[in-house]
Design a protein around this nucleic acid. Structure first.
Lengths: 97, 97
DNA sequence: GCTCGACTTTCCGTCATGGAAAGTGACGGG
DNA sequence: CCCGTCACTTTCCATGACGGAAAGTCGAGC
């Protein structure tokens, strides 16, 4: 049984962060700008939410200077994927999925 | 096509209210005390959340004096079921369900 | 040294939320 | 009839989360 233990996680539940996690869960990593545009928030707002996810140990921020341009890549950590999966499981439980 | 249009609904999204809607979606109606205990909140908190759901037209509150005891029953309105379904659909979309 | 791009942080006002406690209305008892 | 109880409701109050705007930071390049 690889069933995830449902666990409500407030850090993941907030709308903007749920979207961020949802996006990152589907890929290996995504760039800051791409996430910002997909989620539809401003730089400062995304930055602040990412900071919270990072503080929780859910997101890893990768800074890199590629082609003389600063590129910040975001990706979920193992803990982040686990927390997201657990939270999604809890949502399904609550919503009768 | 009985597909529900995904639509994020902040009123439904808040944890306590998501639980309330989840409970009510599964039944015809439930009593105030049962919901309060299932959700695990205090009288005042449940009352306030129910009030918000009622204001949004999602929940119908039925007052009845049965067996000399006040009984408040809660149930989702048609709009409430629609909003809940739409929100759940949106959550699935976001979480890659 | 200065500017630019790409984020970050700070500042600030607003709104949501929960706990505690007082308030309300309908009964049933004394 | 007045009183206490039950089952909620409302009010009061203290946090804390959020977002927008604007200033700040940092490496690259001119």
């Amino acid at each position: 049984m690889t069933a995830v233990q449902p666990r409500f996680d407030a850090v993941v539940h907030a709308p903007p962060r749920l979207q961020i996690c949802g996006l990152l869960a589907a890929v290996d990593s995504m760039e800051f700008a791409a996430v910002r545009d997909s989620v539809g928030v401003s730089d400062s707002v995304l930055s602040k939410h990412v900071k919270q996810l990072e503080a929780a140990g859910y997101v890893k921020v990768g800074k890199a200077t590629i082609a003389s341009r600063q590129r910040t890549s975001l990706s979920l950590t193992t803990a982040g994927r686990a927390a997201f999966a657990a939270h999604v499981a809890e949502l399904r439980r609550i919503t009768g999925g």
